[in-house]
Design a protein around this nucleic acid. Structure first.
Lengths: 149, 149
DNA sequence: CAGGGATCACTAGACGGCTAATGTCTTCAG
DNA sequence: CTGAAGACATTAGCCGTCTAGTGATCCCTG
């Protein structure tokens, strides 16, 4: 029933499917592009750092990293100075995807927002940002309420 | 990089987490409320019908139905007239959740859109609808382009 | 210097989602 | 009336995500 939640959900699903189709063209699965993007920005990060950067839990990154290492996109190396840490480093194949994947993502953004007037697009971003903040605040409040003194 | 995709993704994740927390309070997992909603609207539908109504694939509904049957929310029955079909029917427990779950969902909608002026909310819905249509069109186009004569 | 607490990555297992493959039942054409 | 084609649900197996639990390493305190 709720209008916004419903519409947002449908849009999410559609965008997810479109993004997946786009990434698949470059041999990636949905989500892997985000991990790659974090490594393009700064190579050699640890699973924990990446998880924090992506807003995801560490096990998620570990699983993805395992698959992507198998796929030859990155390598796993133990940090020399701190043996607890693992460094994820891009291979040439992983680096080579940066240009095409970023282009694909820009194209998708253009396509899905093509029907929006500049003013409309601006307002959409503003409104969505407010929803994002409100939702994040709601989550923080709940987490805090569940673990009080 | 893409502004809208990035923001939309983050918002999706946050909303998902918030919805999950809300549903968990009623003993449901995220997504089950949607299947239930479809059955509240019309009981006794088949997995295929539900999948179409929810915009997911049939196997997804089958898996969810299995868990929800185990949880005592619905029952599985073979259709008398067409033995290929399966009818999913709500139990009393499944029906009993309608009021509280719908209330929970309305509350979430209110909370996350609380910072939006009425006008702003209206524009958000309009813009999001446009994005949804554009994305759906994009998907249809790709599906058609992949399977030409 | 030694031990205990913090900090990491990783494993196990669950859920929602998808595609591909299986199996069963209907139905329709010959 | 029989057999092939179509419609359905289901299973198998993958990906991304989460929470819990495990194991190793580091560091700081006593």
């Amino acid at each position: 029933m709720p209008e916004f939640l419903d519409l947002h959900g449908k849009t999410s699903k559609a965008l997810r499917a479109a993004a997946d189709a786009g990434m698949r063209r470059h041999g990636l699965h949905l989500g892997q592009n985000l991990l790659l993007a974090a490594l393009w920005e700064q190579d050699g990060r640890t699973p924990g750092e990446l998880a924090a950067a992506l807003g995801v839990t560490t096990p998620t990154v570990v699983k993805m990293a395992t698959r992507m290492a198998t796929a030859g996109l990155l390598t796993r190396t133990r940090d020399d100075r701190d043996q607890r840490l693992v460094r994820l480093r891009l291979t040439d194949a992983g680096r080579a995807l940066q240009q095409p994947v970023e282009a694909e993502r820009r194209l998708l953004e253009e396509r899905v927002t093509a029907d929006l007037a500049p003013e409309e697009r601006r307002l959409l971003l503003t409104a969505l940002a407010k929803v994002h903040r409100a939702t994040t605040a709601l989550l923080a409040e709940q987490d805090g309420a569940d673990t009080p003194a």
